[in-house]
Amino acid sequence: MVHSFSTISVTPLSSALGAELDGIDLSQPLENTQFEDIQNALFTYGAIGFRDQTLSHQNQIDFAKRFGTLEVHPIVKGMEAHPEIIRMHKPAGTPASFGVGWHSDNSFFEKPSLGSVVYAETVPPVGGDTLFANQQLAYDTLSEGMQETLDGLVAIHSAKQAYTSPTALEKYDSDGPISYQKSDVIEKFVEHPVVIKHPTTGKKALYVNAMFTHHFKGWTMEESRPLLEFLCAHATREDFQCRFKWEKNSLVMWDNRIVQHAALNDYVDYDRTLYRVTLNGTTLN
């Protein structure tokens, strides 16, 4: 079903979340009413996609800046001319190893990323889709007893496991398609509520992920593991998901506070190049 906004048309991707937006050229400056429609669609659907957008790196940066300031990742190296842009290149013949697995971007930051804006330059003929999962729906479908248990609970997040895995270690100071650099943030442990409220809509969302959530504050890892495993499996249930199929010149943006995402590793024979710009976030409440 197509939902009408004042300046765009919106076509949902699934009953759980996600939508494609049409009627806007992102290479041109956005009028305030256009931006408000896009922002409302983002908060409503969690992840929004645009097709047939011919964008320069500066166009992508300018669009993202309408939503806030841009981060320069402390670990993943950006482009030399545009340090706020990460070139996510997966060469043909190699498996995907960046962004694979369910996660919320940079939940190991004290102020996790608000969201990301990703633009496709080269895409495989098959495979390489990205999945998104609705974390507000994940919270809403928990039992009343589980919601009461989680409200007020705090989780510890860390980048250490994800950024010291064998595939990650290969990327440090390499000349490969994606390169990492050492950072003190890898060793840090940060605290975030297990249940957060969206600052605009006020809706509650589950905020744990398998990639970066380490344990619960005041709990041992052994005590934390069963509940974390349940929550991470629940958070990414198939009925909470949508799938975005990449096409050349498509752009996707998501609200990192209310969705998790996962890149699929199912196109080993093909090349793919995406460009990611990420928005600085705020303290989670």
Results as ranks from 00 to 15, higher is better:
Ala96Ser: 15
Lys77Phe: 03
Glu71Thr: 00
Ser97Val: 10
Glu71Gln: 11
Pro95Cys: 01
Ile85Gly: 05
Thr54Gly: 09
Gly99Lys: 15
Gly78Val: 09
Thr44Ala: 08
Ala41His: 07
Ile86Tyr: 03
His73Pro: 09
Thr44Phe: 01
Gln53Cys: 09
Leu42Glu: 05
Gly101Tyr: 13
Val72Glu: 01
Asn40Leu: 13
Glu84Ala: 00
Lys90Pro: 14
Gly93Lys: 00
Ile86Ala: 06
Leu42Thr: 02
Val76Arg: 09
Asp62Ala: 13
Glu80Asn: 09
Thr69Asp: 10
Glu71Val: 02
Arg66Met: 08
Thr94Phe: 02
Asn40Gln: 14
Phe63Asp: 07
Gly93His: 01
Pro83Cys: 08
Ala64Gln: 12
Gln53Glu: 11
Asp62Cys: 13
Ile85Asp: 06
Val100Pro: 15
Thr94Cys: 01
Val100Tyr: 13
Asn40Arg: 10
Thr44Ile: 00
His57Asp: 15
Ile48Gly: 10
Ala64Asp: 07
Gly99Ser: 15
Met88Val: 15
Lys65Glu: 15
Glu84His: 04
Ile75Gln: 04
Gln58Val: 15
Thr44His: 04
His82Lys: 09
Phe63Thr: 05
Ile75Cys: 01
Val72Met: 00
His89Thr: 05
Asn59Ala: 12
Gly68Pro: 08
Asp52Ile: 03
Ala96Phe: 03
Val72Asn: 00
Thr69Tyr: 01
His57Met: 14
Leu42Ala: 02
Leu42Trp: 07
Thr94Tyr: 05
Ile75His: 09
Ala64Lys: 02
Asp62Glu: 15
Asn40Lys: 12
Gln53Trp: 08
Phe43Ile: 07
Phe50Thr: 02
Ile86Glu: 04
His57Glu: 13
Ala92Phe: 10
Gln58Phe: 12
Lys77Arg: 15
Thr54Cys: 11
Gly68Ile: 11
Leu55Pro: 07
Ala41Pro: 04
Arg51Pro: 07
Tyr45Lys: 01
Gly99Pro: 13
Ser56Tyr: 07
Gly93Trp: 00
Thr94Ser: 10
Glu71Ala: 08
Ala92His: 04
Lys65Tyr: 03
His82Asn: 13
Val100Gln: 12
Ile61Gly: 04
Thr69Gln: 11
Ser56His: 09
Ile48Tyr: 05
Leu55Ala: 06
Arg66Leu: 11
Met88Ser: 10
